[in-house]
Design a protein around this nucleic acid. Structure first.
Lengths: 154, 154
DNA sequence: TTCAAAGCGGACTGGATTGGTCCTATTTAA
DNA sequence: TTAAATAGGACCAATCCAGTCCGCTTTGAA
């Protein structure tokens, strides 16, 4: 399976939650513990996700007491590719592609060297039009279940 | 990085080599040790790749002395997606997607459940038009380097 | 009839990757 | 001054995968 990191999945959940809570640019912030409660994801993991999202410029952290996180843009302006890039690195299918010339021991006889590029390009194009909002909106109608989950009970 | 198995890469190399050697349907066969020499990939690994390709119906194994492998179809009729399917499983980005309902501990509050489907669909569409021949042909002009590689020397 | 060459299937192991956690420092509102 | 929160880094356990190695079966040729 073409796996991407589990953290990427969490990231979409967290971003969606931030949008639902109105943690938009100029708006109020939402804390990591609060997001952990709301999403059911363990708190340290949420913190890690937010850390990475912050480094990628997708969320903005406000330090100090009453601090928290908010989105830097609406989800409709946030390409999914940026989230994937932050957690999984550049979208490239094989090590052969990103490797430096000379790293591949079969380089001299390998008839496929560099040939995955069109595939990567095709995938990049396919994803390029998708924003985080596209993954979030259809299920916003989902009923919120605040405290039914054992792992969020503390 | 969106990795797929290294074996998938090898598979394309091996398939390409089979085509170059004329190991086509009804044609002669090529042995695993021979392919190992020709590609510079270690023999046990080549054998493993061919095994999987055989189970996927992409190559046909001929057992016994003077046995070997040949393609079941020309590379132009071999979708890359079938190769990926054989080595990496179905093209689906997250565990959330293929997981059975109830496996996800955040299921009840997860607003993204099943939402990767359109992304997977987009990627499947992007790859659907690509055949193994598309990855092989442009570099068929590559000069063959028969015995320059230390790992093929025996 | 025997032998050797080759595919077939499965099991095993070492290494790399990753998910998840924790600790400490820094910032800042009350 | 204190407490709440982010920021950054280090660390550990578990998982996954590439690669190898067995034994078995098949089959053409001597």
């Amino acid at each position: 399976m073409l796996r991407l990191s589990k953290l990427t999945d969490y990231a979409v959940v967290v971003l969606t939650r931030l949008a639902q809570d109105g943690a938009m640019p100029g708006g109020r912030v939402q804390t990591a513990p609060g997001l952990a409660l709301a999403t059911g994801i363990a708190e340290p993991t949420v913190a890690k996700v937010l850390k990475i999202l912050g480094q990628a410029g997708l969320v903005e952290g406000v330090r100090g007491a009453r601090g928290g996180y908010r989105l830097t843009r609406p989800l409709t302006a946030m390409p999914l590719s940026e989230v994937i890039l932050a957690f999984d690195g550049p979208i490239a299918l094989t090590a052969c592609v990103d490797g430096i010339a000379g790293m591949c021991e079969a380089e001299q006889v390998c008839p496929v060297r560099g040939r995955w590029d069109p595939v990567n390009e095709a995938i990049r194009n396919a994803i390029s039009g998708i924003t985080v909002a596209d993954l979030a909106t259809p299920l916003q109608t989902c009923v919120p279940v605040p405290a039914l989950n054992p792992i969020v009970a503390e």
